[in-house]
């Protein structure tokens, strides 16, 4: 390999710099528009704001590294969710022991009274007890309001698989969260 960059004419170098500036500007605009929602979804997936920030940054970094290709996609937003969920799944499989922390949370059967407020299982805690892909379905479908079809394409699942996972995960949330949630979900 010869290094052409040292021999590059100044004009080429300037054009390259301008292209980078334009790319950075466009990418920054995307982060400003989508970054907060992406980070919040990451939080719902991992229950930790610091980790959520790392996962989001990593997601955005991967997108930036391929921005020239990514920017031409029909939906950069949907693509960003696909990259995020892949990053989350990878992180999850790497730290698959971490969910044990939650193992002593009781499953609350229907008729049981709710415990003291500080003992109540929050939505985020309950989400953490779901299969990570079921959790992704709930977050994309209900926190982000994507259609079943969009969720399916983001996660690379069939529409029926998304519906099945959605129903199963909602049922599990009802069990974990008890009456209050049951009323909300009908």
């Amino acid at each position: 390999m010869t290094d052409t960059s040292t021999a590059a004419p100044a004009a080429w170098s300037r054009a390259r710099r301008r292209a980078k500036e334009a790319r950075d500007e466009e990418f920054t605009a995307f982060v400003e528009a989508a970054g907060t929602r992406l980070r919040r979804s990451a939080y719902l997936m991992c229950r930790d704001w610091h980790l959520a920030q790392d996962l989001t940054q990593h997601t955005l970094a991967k997108m930036y590294a391929a921005w020239d290709r990514v920017r031409t996609k029909a939906s950069v937003e949907a693509y960003s969710r696909r990259v995020l969920m892949n990053v989350v799944f990878d992180q999850q499989s790497r730290r698959s022991g971490s969910e044990i922390v939650l193992a002593d949370l009781p499953d609350r059967a229907g008729g049981e009274p709710a415990g003291a407020p500080e003992l109540r299982v929050t939505l985020v805690d309950a989400l953490a007890r779901l299969d990570v892909r079921d959790r992704a379905v709930l977050v994309l479908r209900h926190a982000e309001d994507h259609s079943v079809e969009t969720v399916a394409s983001i996660l690379g699942l069939s529409v029926s698989a998304v519906k099945m996972r959605n129903a199963r995960a909602l049922e599990r949330l009802r069990t974990l969260l008890g009456d209050e949630f049951r009323q909300l979900c009908g």
Binding site: E32, R40, L44
Partner: peptide, 28 residues
């Protein structure tokens, strides 16, 4: 309920997030 669940968002300036992502993405 999902909106309530993220109400504790400590916040982060999008500009800082973009810069950090561009630095990491540049390395990739």
């Amino acid at each position: 309920r999902f909106d309530e669940a993220v109400a504790g968002d400590p916040g982060l300036a999008p500009g800082a997030l973009a810069r950090a992502a561009m630095a990491e993405g540049g390395r990739i």
